[in-house]
Design a protein around this nucleic acid. Sequence first.
DNA 1: CCTATAGTTAATCATATGCTTAACCAATCA
DNA 2: TGATTGGTTAAGCATATGATTAACTATAGG
Lengths: 114, 114
Amino acid sequence: MLNQSTALDLTFQALADPARRAMLERLAQGPAAVSELAQPLTMSLPAVLQHLTVLENAGLVTSAKAGRVRTCQIAGPALTLAEGWLNARRAEWEARFDRLEEYLNDIKDGESHG
Amino acid sequence: MLNQSTALDLTFQALADPARRAMLERLAQGPAAVSELAQPLTMSLPAVLQHLTVLENAGLVTSAKAGRVRTCQIAGPALTLAEGWLNARRAEWEARFDRLEEYLNDIKDGESHG
DNA sequence: CCTATAGTTAATCATATGCTTAACCAATCA
DNA sequence: TGATTGGTTAAGCATATGATTAACTATAGG
């Protein structure tokens, strides 16, 4: 098992490319073959395969081959790791913002009270 | 203004590095000087500056210099773009999952009924 | 069996990333 | 005013990334 930092590295890195996000957007609608993922992308099939590898290494996508067609699926829980990190940062930031707001109110009260 | 795809590229790319995430985690607690951000990181100050540039270009952090100290802040709305993209994917995926479940229930009913 | 389809591997290449050191600038402060 | 502190710029370098083409494998269909 990878440590959390490396998992986040791989996840965010995987999400940082528009072709890979397009593949995930397609897969969020349901499973698809490699050639189906490749179809809207303006690049060679080997390039698509490399992107697929990145997505699989990040644990965002799984795939299995039946006959000569490889079917890809989005991996449910994987996105939640990234989502969780972002949520945590926003929660911290908002908490700090709230405290700041409270502090500013205190100052204002202090001024009006003398 | 940048188009949305490029903004997501920059955002996820910025989040893909552990040093930059550490900087954001620190900044989520409140503003900090460059040297304060650098302190826990095992790299040179110029390297930290480069990471800071990446975060600023992604719109995740703002900074201003007063005297000789540059104070950095997390930029509120920036993380929500990335969060929004992830949420949308999860929503789609879950909707599909629900439809699949429904479909499987239909099949099961069909079997038991005839 | 032959051919077309779907995917895969390998080699190569240009550019991007992440880091370093050295040199430098501008506020403080003794 | 001279040293220190905090930051900045520039140059260089190793590795990673994203793409290509060419060559190859394996299944499906006529």
